[in-house]
Design a protein around this nucleic acid. Sequence first.
DNA 1: CTTCTTGAATAGTATGACTATTGGAGGCAC
DNA 2: GTGCCTCCAATAGTCATACTATTCAAGAAG
Lengths: 221, 221
Amino acid sequence: MTTSDGAAFRQVLDNLGRAIIDGRMAAGDTDTVDAIVARSGASRPVVREATRVLVSLGMLTAGRRVGLRVRPRAEWDLLDPQLIRWRLASPDRETQLDELRGLRLAVEPEAARLTAIRGIGAEELSGIADQLERSTLERDGPAFLDADRRFHALLLAAAGNGMLARLRDVVDEALRERTPGDPAHWQAAPGDIALHREVATAVAARDAERAAVAMRRILAT
Amino acid sequence: MTTSDGAAFRQVLDNLGRAIIDGRMAAGDTDTVDAIVARSGASRPVVREATRVLVSLGMLTAGRRVGLRVRPRAEWDLLDPQLIRWRLASPDRETQLDELRGLRLAVEPEAARLTAIRGIGAEELSGIADQLERSTLERDGPAFLDADRRFHALLLAAAGNGMLARLRDVVDEALRERTPGDPAHWQAAPGDIALHREVATAVAARDAERAAVAMRRILAT
DNA sequence: CTTCTTGAATAGTATGACTATTGGAGGCAC
DNA sequence: GTGCCTCCAATAGTCATACTATTCAAGAAG
């Protein structure tokens, strides 16, 4: 296992990242490499590497004589999966989930439109819709969620836009958060499945508008 | 000036990033820290810090005994502004611009919709539309482009979604690429300005659908 | 042919020293 | 008093070196 490799680095990075995200280090606060070394017990190279990453994520600036300064939230790279994970494990959790929903509502209908225009992946989408139906009949929660994830991931990938495809990993962070076993879920499932099928058939028919509308309805649920 | 601070680190990071982006180091290729140290002339800590950042950007994996391995493109953090800049300076440039257009087409109409629902920023949007008109009358290209950037940035910020707001910096990379002075531009400007006004008034009227449609038409140009 | 052992390659970690930059304090001129 | 200049000290940046831990792969053993 890789449990203990790069552990020092990861832990320092994680601690700093979390401290900034949840406001224990607020925007404008300063700190120094040496202070972090002393606090964390890690060596200087490790701390420096961690701060470099945080600088690259827009969370810190580093200046001689000034030390490390926390940047305002507006400048953080909120689309980085690592940051999303930190936010999901912070008091910001609900906000992060809301924002992910908003982002999906913006991006996925358009991805469905593009995929329909390209007419790509219709068969796979239809196959995944079958799996959605099967897992519903069998009341197999994990299988349902997994199929759902693959459906949306495939759609984003098939749009032929690398940046949209990248959002797959971003929204995946949200989808991974869902837990199976909600009884109310199975009642809503039939309509949900029908909408997924609608997307698949619209893509097969290259009907961009229909695909986008159906996808929007899926996400509006 | 900060011209020469962190120069060693930045240069190593830039060289490696560019080499990966433009395929001189292809997916699956391996390299070692020591080799990079030898090639670049920089010290080990500097090279290590750069590789840490590239790992965090999803472009590299680091393993003992294996060294550094370039990850496939699908796993790169294509939404990171730094990566976008690298792509814009690579043979991938046109693809990157296309993808940015696609992303805007997905995100900005939805941002307009959300902003309209919240009814926020209508006055500022209207003011920027005025500036668009004024700069058109005066044939002031840079002023026009700047106002246009501020219009779209404000709209993304006003949607109240941090992740959407973050996309402002992402699309800004594209908007910065435009050059003023295209004569054909001024002929299209009146319609463009009218659409911007339409967005502003729709936001003021809290008419989400109208705002989204107008924004979509702006981007479809 | 398969499985285990062993070794070498390589990233990870640590330490210490030196350099360069820069913000601020204190002094100096006006 | 005010504003400018000088100098100093704090701090990140850079470098060299050594040691540790991990892991792949070759070779040995069965």
